[in-house]
Structures are given as C-alpha cells and as structure tokens.
Design a protein around this nucleic acid. Structure first.
Length: 415
DNA sequence: GCTGCCGGGTG
DNA sequence: CACCCGGCAGC
C-alpha cells in the first residue's frame, strides 16, 4: 500500500517538507523528478505521466475530430492541460507556439505512443482513443493520475479562504472542483487546470495562468502597476495543478497502488471516507487550520495508522509511559492490548487521549479492540462462588481446602 | 481494597 | 510434592 508513507508523514516534519519539495520541482521541472528513486515519487510520476498522456489523447481527439488546425487561442488552454512539465516556465510564450502540435517533438508523445501500443491499437491514434474513451467517459479518464498531487495541493487550500484579494470567483470555482464532486457537468471532462500559488502561506488557486501571475506579481512580488509586464519570476511561485472532479478517486487510487488502468474501472463508487482521508495530510502538513472536513479526516487516517501501530505496540511506547511524547502520532499506538502477557508496567489507557478529539479516541478504541488478540486470557475467569477464605475467614484458615490455603484455585467450592 | 489464583520459590 | 507467597487482575 502506498500510504505506508503516511506514518512517516505524521511523524516527521522533515518528511513533510520533503514531500512538498518533491512537489515543487515536479511542477517546475520534470528532470529533477526523474532522478528520484523513492517509490512514492515513482508512483507519482507514473500517475502524472498517465494523466498527461490522457490529456494528450484528449487533445488528439479534438484534433482528429476536427481534422484541422485548432485555433491557437483554444489550443493554448489545452496545451496547459497536457504539458504540465513546462507549464510554469513556458506558459506565456508557449501558448501560441505551433511546435507543440507536432507529435514527434513532444516529450509526452513517447508515453502516449507506448500506451497505444499497449492497447493494441497501433494503427490509428483516433481508433485507439475511442475504444478506450467509452469506459473512461463514465469513470473519468484521469482517475489514476492526480491522487498525490491533488492531495498535496489541498493543504494549500485551507488557508485560501482567507481574504481573497481578487478572483473570488475563481476561488469558489476551485472549491467546487475540490469538494463538490457530484457536479454532473464536470463528469465528462473532469480535468481542470488550475494554477496554485506556491508562495508561503498563500496557496491561492486561480484558474488562469495570467491570473496567478498577476496575483504573484502584485501580492507577493510587490510589483506595483498592474501592467502585464513579467520578468518570468512569477513562474517560480506558482504551479499548475490538474484538478479532477472525481477527487475522491484520488484517495482511493492512492490507497490501492494498482496499475492506473485497473483503477479506471470503478471510480464512481468510492466511499466518502476516502475523500476525507485525502484531506488529512493537508491539515497536518500546512497550516494547523482545520476545516470541518479536514477535521474528520484524521480519524480515518489514524485508523490506518493504528493498524501499523498496533503491531508495533508491545516493544514500543507502553512501558515507557514516562517517555511518552505528545507527538500525536504515537498516541494510538500505546493502547494496550489486555490479553498480552505483558510484564511491563501497566499503563492506563487513558493516556491515549493525547490524540485530541474524542471522536478520534473512539475510533482508535473500536479498531484496536476489534481485532481480538490471539492470546486468550491466561487467567481463567474468576470464580463466582464463595471460596474457603470467604466462607471461613482468615481466622479459620485451617478449615480451608488445601488449594485455598496454598492460594491456588479453590477445590472445595468449585464453580 | 478485597479476593481469587497464577506463577514461582523453597525445602 | 507439599507448602508458601508475591503479585496480578476482577470485582
């Protein structure tokens, strides 16, 4: 499961930063990304590339259907859709470039090509596309792609509701995309490109590159005069993000690191908890600001987390209750499983409240208690009836049965 | 805190 | 094995 990285995420601040750092270059430069060996990143890459290929196909379809050149203006937006890699850098200048249309030149072409081969439709790209597009239409073509990126971008969104200097509309639109998945109109082409400000503590999301550039220029770079003059510096402060209306799917696909093609099958039926789960890292990583949504998220996350923790429990925190750190990540772990023959210091489970909300605690509780520990209680349930000691009292100890005298299980008044 | 009794020590 | 007891855990 891919979310093995999450525990880390919870534990280490540094790892949080890392993930963001990965993201940043991701938007800026693909090369950097490829050098990465981390599994998670690879997965990310894969998914992202997949998205791109899909987008490319999308464009292709349009080209094919019209069989003529697409007007530059229209193409520019589509271009952004697919060329995530160069988006930030080339965005402004690239928009009208005819170069992009020639398939062989495009860096992504290789991907889409291989994909086509895999599909067994090498003959014409259009046919290949269509055979595939039918199911995708239902499920949403981009299902596999953005889980990670989308996830990690969400955190930025939390602070967004702050005073929106401009583009209030875009803001609303963005949240629509993120949270109102059931919007039917988005079903068909659920990919939407947004531009996210990467400026610290900003995270503004706008729908147009120009908009975000302007935002960065004016708000962050302090460029007065709203002239559209740009030295390109803004490019470094925003990134392009693909928003998938079915953001829910993202959560799931990240849960099950299957091949993207597989996950294409059944996006619509994703359970709600997953969507909230994707939300989790945000609240944790970025600001501590908790939206109602994100607040519910940790619950689920901790569920997962707990699972791992559970196995690690015995050796870890319990005996060292003194050393218990209010880290938040380990609180659920420390829940002691009663049946275990634990010679360590008994620890009251109450300290597990550390996590925070009662809701979380409840969850942890249920989860942990549910998987019955294989060990049955070594002690047999206490005898109900009165025993020698009780009957005769300490003063008549000689009347006790031997077992009772020996502090063994009473033999006289057996249950 | 009382009580039952397990686990282990001693002779 | 008989006897004893420390200490855990249910009540």
């Amino acid at each position: 499961m891919t979310f093995t990285f999450q525990p880390e995420d919870l534990k280490r601040d540094s790892s949080k930063k890392m993930s963001h750092q990965h993201l940043f270059p991701l938007a800026m430069e693909e090369d950097v990304k490829t050098a990465d060996t981390k599994k998670a990143n690879r997965a990310l890459d894969h998914e992202k590339e997949n998205t791109r290929s899909i987008c490319l196909l999308e464009q292709k379809r349009k080209v094919v259907s019209s069989n003529i050149d697409v007007p530059p203006a229209r193409k520019s937006s589509e271009e952004l859709d697919m060329d995530k890699v160069t988006a930030a850098m080339v965005l402004t200048s690239l928009s009208t470039s005819p170069l992009v249309r020639s398939p062989p030149v495009r860096p992504n072409e290789g991907l889409s090509g291989s994909w086509k081969e895999g599909g067994g439709v090498p003959s014409s790209s259009s046919s290949g596309y269509w055979s595939w597009s039918a199911p995708s239409d239902q499920s949403n073509p981009s299902t596999p792609s953005p889980p990670l990126s989308a996830d990690s971008f969400k955190p930025f969104r939390s602070p967004a509701p702050q005073p929106p200097p401009d583009d209030g509309i875009d803001e609303a639109e963005a949240s629509n995309l993120l949270f109102d998945e059931p919007i039917p109109r988005k079903r068909k082409n659920s990919m939407k490109v947004m531009f996210k400000c990467l400026w610290k503590n900003c995270g503004k999301v706008l729908s147009t590159a120009a908009g975000i550039q302007k935002h960065i220029r004016t708000i962050h770079l302090g460029r007065v005069g709203d002239s559209d003059y740009s030295d390109g510096e803004e490019d470094f402060y925003y990134t392009e993000i693909k928003l998938n209306t079915d953001s829910v799917a993202d959560g799931l696909s990240s849960l099950a690191p299957v091949s993207p093609s597989q996950s294409l099958a059944s996006p619509p039926t994703y359970p709600i908890p997953d969507s909230s789960r994707t939300e989790t890292p945000c609240a944790k990583t970025e600001t501590k600001l908790m939206t109602p949504l994100s607040r519910s998220a940790p619950t689920t996350l901790y569920l997962v987390h707990t699972d791992h923790a559970y196995q690690a429990t015995p050796p870890v925190t319990i005996p060292g209750s003194a050393k218990f750190t209010p880290n938040g990540s380990s609180f659920s772990i420390s829940w002691q499983s009663p049946p275990v023959t634990f010679t360590g210091i008994p620890v009251s489970p109450t300290h597990n409240h550390l996590g925070g909300t009662g809701e979380q605690r409840q969850h942890t509780h249920t989860v942990l208690s549910s998987p019955p520990r294989g060990t049955v209680s070594l002690r047999k349930p206490r005898g109900e009836g009165k025993k020698c000691r009780k009957v005769y009292g300490m003063e008549n100890r000689d009347l006790w049965c031997t077992a009772c005298r020996w502090k063994k299980a009473c033999q006289r008044f057996t249950d």
